[in-house]
């Protein structure tokens, strides 16, 4: 059941209406559209933004690159060390541990978040009574300060009196030590992140679902397509740009995971746990605890490289499997 993008009369009509008759001359164009004094005027408009960008983005980017090839002493003296920081990272087991942990979080969080978000959006896209209330509830954690969320999850998962452990005890089971057992710390952070972010993917998916034209479903139904076939052949291809977009966004977001791990594991044992040391956490530690600004910058450039390559590959792959509407 192939869907032809051209078969969308309702979509294309407005653009025909707006089309200007070719004969009408655009009177003003050559007289008013461009004047030389717009040059300095435009620069004035750009000035505040450009100044801010130079000071807080462009110069820092160059500074960071330079910094990654050296080390800043406590005295303020800067010493070039060439690729020393990068070579150190290559051999640093803690760094690779952080990369590994971050990869775990990406693999665990992103697919679950997309699936839960899509399922919720599909449910709320039905003509349900009270769906506004559901949307309010599912979206509530998104506006919640992550620190407050982490505090509550620490309580919920506490081994001695946390409600989740209580359920284990009442079933006659020994609850795991969610917050200090290394094999349970990661799932605990995943749980917090899912609770916090699923409402976000839900809302974006909901907007995408509402953009799917009803005629396509009606046509599919007339052709005898089952509910699953309609989902598989109408919904999935039409929302694939959103899936792609959310996937890239969430992968990059998961790679930058910091606050969740920082708040959840700092409280339970002082120093960060090995199991929840993420790449950004390691940047933070090196820069502000170990006073290794140069090494921290090198890690930050590794992060940038990941995001760059990822965005690039995804933009390439996108052409193969993402369906875009032809307007």
């Amino acid at each position: 059941m192939a869907i032809q993008p051209q078969e969308q009369p309702l979509r294309s009509e407005p653009s025909i209406d707006r089309r200007r008759p070719l004969a009408t001359p655009t009177v003003s164009r050559h007289r008013f559209a461009w004047r030389p004094d717009q040059h300095w005027e435009a620069y004035l408009f750009l000035l505040p933004s450009l100044a801010g960008f130079l000071l807080f983005v462009l110069i820092p980017v160059l500074g960071s690159l330079l910094l990654s090839f050296g080390e800043l002493k406590l005295s303020g003296a800067f010493q070039l060390v060439g690729i020393g920081n990068y070579r150190e990272l290559w051999r640093d087991p803690v760094f690779w541990r952080a990369v590994q942990n971050t990869a775990y979080f990406m693999v665990a969080i992103v697919p679950l978040q997309l699936i839960f978000g899509l399922l919720l959006a599909l449910a709320l896209n039905q003509p349900l009574r009270g769906k506004l209330a559901y949307r309010v509830i599912y979206f509530m954690p998104v506006v919640t300060t992550i620190v407050a969320g982490a505090i509550v999850f620490q309580y919920l998962l506490n081994r001695d009196f946390g409600p989740i452990s209580q359920i284990f005890w009442s079933l006659g089971l020994k609850p795991p030590n969610f917050l200090s057992d290394p094999s349970w710390q990661k799932p605990s952070v995943v749980l917090l992140t899912l609770w916090k972010n699923t409402g976000f993917t839900m809302v974006i998916y909901l907007a995408a679902l509402q953009g799917v034209p009803q005629e396509l479903y009606d046509a599919a139904e007339v052709d005898g397509a089952s509910a699953w076939q309609r989902f598989r052949n109408v919904t999935v291809p039409l929302i694939s740009p959103t899936t792609f977009f959310l996937f890239v966004l969430q992968m990059i977001g998961a790679f930058q995971l910091f606050t969740e791990a920082y708040v959840m594991t700092r409280g339970s044992g002082g120093a960060p746990a090995q199991a929840t040391l993420t790449v950004v956490y390691y940047i933070y530690q090196n820069a502000f605890a170990f006073n290794r600004m140069g090494k921290a910058s090198a890690i930050a450039w590794f992060l940038f490289l990941f995001i760059f390559i990822f965005t690039f590959i995804q933009t390439r792959m996108q052409r193969r499997w993402v369906y875009y509407e032809v307007n």
Partner: peptide, 8 residues
């Protein structure tokens, strides 16, 4: 990413 510009 913000982490690149954060240190400078």
């Amino acid at each position: 990413p913000f982490q690149v510009t954060m240190i400078p």
